[in-house]
Write a protein that binds this DNA or RNA. Structure first.
Lengths: 195, 195
DNA sequence: GTAGGGAATGAACGGCGTTCATTATCCGTG
DNA sequence: CACGGATAATGAACGCCGTTCATTCCCTAC
């Protein structure tokens, strides 16, 4: 095995272990020394692969984004939903299901520091853009006369709304709101938009 | 001045200084040593007043919550909005305005760790509850036949939606979405709900 | 076999929140 | 006023963190 291969191997190993830790105990539980011990390498080796720990989290997030997009797409393909509203509901429910199934990984997606948008990797905005473009389809069907920018604005509004409902819903799931309630809230908003 | 008074004074001083730091550079910029130097006391004294730094942030958040609620209430009182929909829009715009004016203080409200809901102070949930009860009024007017629980669920959905739009909108304000766009998204959602 | 260079190493650094033995201060009592 | 016990203030020290870098190791090309 060549040097390059081993390096790529270590990269994959680190990402896998990091994802496991994040999924189980959250981003803040990810420690360089612990990770190095788990991976069977030194702390320094981590920094030969990633510039810093944050970059590693972002690498995990990249894969999480792909998974999430796939989950939403799969849900649409698998469903028999026909009307734009039904399709939007299906997507939103898939989003909720993913967040509920992998709360810590999902949370890590939006835990990135936001001091400067410029230091967000470009693929990050592109990944979100891709997610939005999936939702564009039913929104566009719902408002066939609108130009693409206007459709995208409504898509953004809809996605942000669902995101907010899921976010606040999941965070205080003990207090009052159960998963059924979150579902009801999602349907209320989406159905309101879909006439 | 009695011991108790000075202690209360120190408490207020620390909260004020902490708010200044958080408002200017964010929660993560709040350091015990720096704060002690600014307040003219030792690091240990901070821990005589607050159990830990997190508790201090929560104290700041408590006042921020009051401010925010007041801002929303003031907006309603000042406006000539009559229809439920107009009143909801007024509230949502006030929420956006507050978040835009004090982004770091507003963000700190939702940066609390969420491992256990039980360790969230009860006044925290009550403060959010109070905010929701303000919004209940127009929602109840809009759906006069609904029982209080159902109204509250729709209120929650609406608030969460606006929150999500403001959250994602403010975070990437450089990239694409301007404040006007955020306003448009808010109106789109609220007006959809308001028929 | 060997020289060169990139990769691996882990001790060390600086910064953090938090603790706690020590010191200073207050206040009710004799 | 004097004194003693409780209470508050202090900041050095502790443990943990991410990150660095002088050193060592090992692979590869000649």
């Amino acid at each position: 095995m060549s040097t390059t291969d081993r390096r790529a191997n270590l990269r994959d190993t680190l990402i896998d272990l990091a994802r496991e830790t994040i999924a189980g105990e959250g981003t803040s539980a990810l420690k360089a020394r612990t990770l190095a011990a788990e991976a069977g390498c030194s702390v320094g080796s981590i920094y030969n692969v990633f510039g810093d720990m944050h970059e590693l989290v972002m690498a995990v997030n990249g894969e999480t984004f792909r998974d999430l997009g796939q989950a939403v797409t799969d849900a649409i393909v698998a469903s028999a939903a026909t009307t734009p509203t039904d399709r939007m509901i299906t997507m939103a429910e898939a989003y909720l299901a993913y967040a509920a199934a992998h709360p810590q990984l999902w949370r890590a997606l939006f835990d990135v520091p936001i001091t400067e948008t410029s230091n967000l990797p470009s693929w990050y905005l592109e990944a979100l853009d891709e997610l939005l473009s999936i939702i564009d389809a039913p929104v566009s069907d719902l408002f066939p006369d609108l130009p693409p920018d206007a459709v995208r604005l409504r898509t953004r509004a809809l996605f942000s709304s669902i995101h907010g409902i899921v976010l606040l819903g999941i965070e205080e799931r003990i207090s009052s709101v159960g998963k059924d309630n979150i579902s009801d809230m999602i349907r209320f908003i989406v159905e309101s938009v879909g006439k």
